[in-house]
Structure formats: structure tokens, C-alpha cells
């Protein structure tokens, strides 16, 4: 997956939250409750689809704000962070 503003591209699995993947890659990731209730971690998707780890729902449109703490990559994903 790619973090467009930080310019980092990493290989990630499809089970780890994007928040963790970004933090491990050294990207400055906003966060809050880390459990999907506070909307403190929202980031815009540029491309790709994510999967909600709580419900398995897959979603994602360009410009959509997703919660990185409870989302993982369903396809290749570009996040504007």
C-alpha cells in the first residue's frame, strides 16, 4: 500500500490495521481510541478498497474518509497521509 503524502510504499498483509502498518513504516498517523469509535484516525483514500475489521465489509471510493484503526487493505490501497 502507498502513503501518498509521505511517499512511503510498503507491502502489508490484509489483516493488520492500516494504522499499525503506517506507524510501523514511520508514517505520522493520526489516532485516537484505536477501536473505531472516536473518528480520530480518519484519512482519505485515494484509490483501492479497504475492509472493516469489525464487520468484514469491503468499501472504498476516491476521497472517502476511512478509519485506519479498524480498516485493513482489501486491495492495493493509496492513503493520503
Amino acid at each position: 500500500m502507498r502513503f501518498t503524502r509521505s511517499g512511503r510504499t510498503i507491502a502489508g498483509d490484509q489483516a493488520t490495521p492500516l494504522l499499525i502498518l503506517g506507524e510501523d513504516a514511520g508514517v505520522v498517523m493520526p489516532s485516537g481510541c484505536r477501536m473505531g469509535i472516536c473518528f480520530g484516525c480518519v484519512a482519505p483514500v485515494r484509490s483501492g478498497q479497504v475492509r472493516d475489521l469489525r464487520t468484514n465489509q469491503v468499501h472504498g471510493e476516491a476521497g472517502e474518509l476511512i478509519q485506519t484503526c479498524i480498516s485493513t487493505a482489501a486491495t492495493d490501497v493509496e492513503l493520503e497521509l
Binding site: 485516537g32 481510541c33 477501536m35 469509535i37 472516536c38 473518528f39 480520530g40
Partner: peptide, 10 residues
């Protein structure tokens, strides 16, 4: 939002 959505609700 930080003190409420995050801290209080967690």
C-alpha cells in the same frame, strides 16, 4: 473531540 470521543468513550 479528543477528550470526549476518544478518552471519555474509551
Amino acid at each position: 473531540k479528543h477528550t470526549h470521543n476518544d478518552l471519555h468513550h474509551t
